[in-house]
Design a protein around this nucleic acid. Structure first.
Lengths: 129, 129
DNA sequence: TAACGACCTGAAGCTGCTATAGGTCAAGCC
DNA sequence: GGCTTGACCTATAGCAGCTTCAGGTCGTTA
């Protein structure tokens, strides 16, 4: 009855909800080689294990913070090669973490510009009266 | 001699340097109606006034913080209509400022996920030994 | 049994640039 | 004068990263 397949096995809609990636995007990522290890049920539908879902969540974070697909693909290849590559993956995440911090600084800078502009609008409106 | 045209008049390369937008992007923005008021010299080259450059700098901030072109175009239309629209422009910037803060929060969230992942890599490497 | 909903595929479309090809013009050099 | 160089110009094609659409397969439910 209400069993969602094997426990520990999620449907694409559940993964979508959890990761914030759209269903189309998940399929697109699979096609692009970011998660070639997703299994299918006998009915041809994708079945996601807990660790598949975790992986997609990490991908979502990387993408949301601006990692280009080419790098994500490289990262995915390391992941697919197993635990020997952890050192390399760690290095990649560290590099990306730096660029994320740069990005945050850039957003702050833009925020300041925005606020200065708002201030100027206020000044102009005062002058008009 | 070394005079760069009228003072108060910049070339596209100078505006590019100052705003961080590529020269192509500036031309593309003009074609897209984000700055239809840029004048040309008798030689057909674009000549940017100080306020043109300021405007493009603001556009750059908006774009860098994720405002879609359609909204930028709406904003540009208000700008082109003159000072009567300041109230509306201010409202638009406030709305965008909110979405910018949301975006910053999202980046922070992703940053946390990244760091947790790094921590887990460290744990795994310890276990391997 | 028919209709619904959740999944599937492949291909086309969209946004926001970026790169390429080909041309104009002024400045500097021989 | 003739030649090259460099900064600009246009128009068009290409690319990344999705999203949307058309059309099809299941399993469940009324």
């Amino acid at each position: 009855m209400g069993l969602t397949g094997k426990a520990n096995c999620m449907k694409i809609s559940e993964v979508s909800e959890r990761t914030g990636l759209s269903i189309s995007t998940i399929r697109f990522y699979e096609k692009s080689g970011l998660c070639p290890f997703i299994k299918r049920g006998t009915d041809g539908k994708r079945t996601f294990s807990k660790s598949d879902a975790d992986w997609l969540e990490l991908l979502a974070s990387l993408r949301a913070t601006g990692m280009p697909m080419a790098k994500m693909r490289a990262f995915a290849n390391l992941y697919a090669c197993g635990d020997d590559t952890i050192q390399e993956r760690k290095a990649a995440l560290l590099v990306h973490g730096q660029s994320l911090e740069d990005r945050q600084a850039e957003l702050d800078r833009c925020h300041t510009i925005l606020n200065r502009k708002l201030q100027r609008y206020d000044d102009m409106m005062k002058d008009q009266k």
